[in-house]
Design a protein around this nucleic acid. Structure first.
Lengths: 114, 114
DNA sequence: CTCCTATCTAGATGAATTTCGAATCAGCTG
DNA sequence: CAGCTGATTCGAAATTCATCTAGATAGGAG
């Protein structure tokens, strides 16, 4: 049941002390960096903000794609990056795919910064 | 006196509403993404955490470099990325260069995430 | 002034990223 | 089943990135 490599507690969303309190060790940095990296693109940042602020708590790809000047496959790629970073999750419901945020992960990032 | 393109208020550290409150516009995303991108590397994340948690509020490059397995120029490069992202600043004092965090910028990122 | 140390800059290289069009897959509808 | 629409995957091109070595620059010590 226990996981020996828990760095990000998916229940509490906790991971590490705030930056100002203690330096991250290499393992914590390896866990957190890919999450920040996923936010390091303007399209992905807007995608996450649209999904996170959506009323109903989730958003259809069909509503995300037309908000950008890039192709559908490119949006799909960026959503995959956010998904693999553990920041969002999505599921198909019939014709459409809906994405919602994973708030514990986002909270963990916020906690490290402050 | 007023600046028409202020996205990040360097006095208050404010920038944008939390992700959950409103979607970022393209301009805000273009401003914030490079800052998150700078955090998207494990070495840079550790550098920032070491600098930010340093007692005295600043840290010498000579104490940062030996904590990593990469060459001096590589550390110098990563410090430059953090500097250009507006997350840290540094100055030479005699032989050594000292870096300290820019807390308004870090607070702005934290505010967006929560 | 000359040497030594700390840091940064320049240039090169291999790996990763962004993006697209084409092809594929999932599920509806007639 | 055949055809349509939404979304993802695939493969390729252009760009960016992390890292190194070598060399430059800044400042202190003899």
């Amino acid at each position: 049941m226990s996981n020996q490599l828990v760095v990000l507690d998916t229940v509490s969303g906790a991971c590490c002390a705030p930056l100002a309190d203690a330096a991250l060790d290499a393992g914590q940095a390896e866990t957190l960096a890919p999450m920040f990296k996923a936010l390091g693109d303007p399209i992905r940042l807007r995608l996450l903000s649209m999904i996170t602020s959506a009323q109903g708590g989730e958003m259809c790809v069909c509503d995300l794609t037309p908000a950008f000047d890039v192709s559908g496959p490119t949006i799909s790629h960026h959503l995959k990056v956010l998904r693999e970073a553990g920041l969002i999750e999505g599921d198909r419901r019939g014709t459409w795919v809906w994405y919602r945020p994973l708030p514990e992960a986002i909270r963990a990032l916020a906690a490290v910064l402050k």
